[in-house]
């Protein structure tokens, strides 16, 4: 054992590797220094940051529990946004997934179209989608739902497409050979095979979307984010802590629920 690690140490410190590692560390340090200086941060602010933060925390505590009844409606709206956004995303991404899967895409052009939709929707952050949809639909939960839906399409379509690409064609043929109708083939041979990917992706994405729907309110797209902005702008820090705790609760619940669903459907 000891001999083996000696051996490794020896190789680890060979001259070229040593140079490369030094170079890597040097680059990282240089990048850090250059970036830090370029940011032109006011050192007075930086120096007072810990005190300000402590001050903030002490004003937050204790949380205003009476505020809970007031944030319940926006909290529920947040969950609604996440569920609807995920549901729309999954519905829209099914056809896109068939385009973006190599074995079901009608031709090369549709395949690349599918791939393009997947990577474009993924590269634009949900808050930017929310900005756009607030312009289109006015502020409110609808904009939030659409932002979440569009942002999620890339992710869900990509993973469902991977599920489709893994379908075992033999199972499909066997069902077809019994004289089953195309719909029955879909229900008995294809659906069972993509169901785990489907359930897994939707619940996993929902979990992510719960988090996302807590912030789209910052640009007016509904949910608890609106209440959070209001509380922060009016310096009601005890309410802020209440909201943060509520968000924590919802996030933890969604994580546990989605993990449970994924375990159930293998």
């Amino acid at each position: 054992m000891a001999a083996e690690s000696d051996d490794r140490e020896w190789r680890r410190f060979s001259p070229t590797q040593r140079a490369l590692r030094a170079l890597g560390v040097g680059l990282a340090v240089a990048a850090f220094v250059v970036s830090w200086r370029a940011l032109d941060i006011n050192y007075e602010y930086a120096a007072t940051a810990p005190r300000e933060t402590y001050d903030l925390l002490s004003r937050m505590y204790p949380p205003d529990l009476g505020y809970v009844t007031e944030i319940l409606p926006p909290l529920i709206e947040t969950i609604h946004i996440s569920i609807l956004g995920t549901a729309f995303a999954v519905l829209i991404s099914l056809p896109i997934a068939f385009l973006a899967a190599e074995n079901t895409s009608p031709n090369r052009a549709t395949y690349y179209l599918g791939k393009f939709i997947v990577s474009f929707t993924r590269s634009v952050n949900v808050i930017i989608w929310a900005l756009i949809f607030v312009v289109l639909f006015g502020s409110g939960a609808l904009a939030g739902v659409l932002a979440i839906a569009v942002r999620s399409i890339g992710f869900t379509a990509k993973l469902i497409a991977e599920g489709i690409e893994e379908i075992d064609h033999g199972q499909v043929e066997a069902i077809r050979a019994t004289g089953a109708s195309p719909f029955q083939v879909l229900m008995y041979a294809i659906a069972p095979q993509i169901k785990p990917a489907f359930v897994g992706v939707s619940t996993y994405r929902w979990d992510i979307n719960v988090r996302a729907s807590t912030i789209i309110g910052f640009v007016g797209a509904g949910g608890i984010g609106v209440a959070l902005t209001t509380s922060i702008n009016s310096f009601a820090w005890d309410n802020v802590l209440t909201i943060l705790i509520a968000i924590l609760g919802v996030v933890v619940f969604s994580e546990v629920f989605s993990a449970y669903m994924r375990r159930k459907v293998r």
Binding site: Y45, A46, T48, A49, E52, T53, L56, I127, R211, A212, T214, I215, F218, L228, T229, I232, V240, L244, I247, L248, V251, V252
Partner: peptide, 17 residues
């Protein structure tokens, strides 16, 4: 891990400007 980066950011903005 539980809080979205924008929530952390909005609180940080209040703390340090």
């Amino acid at each position: 891990r539980s809080f979205h980066e924008l929530i952390v950011a909005i609180v940080a903005v209040k703390a340090v400007g």
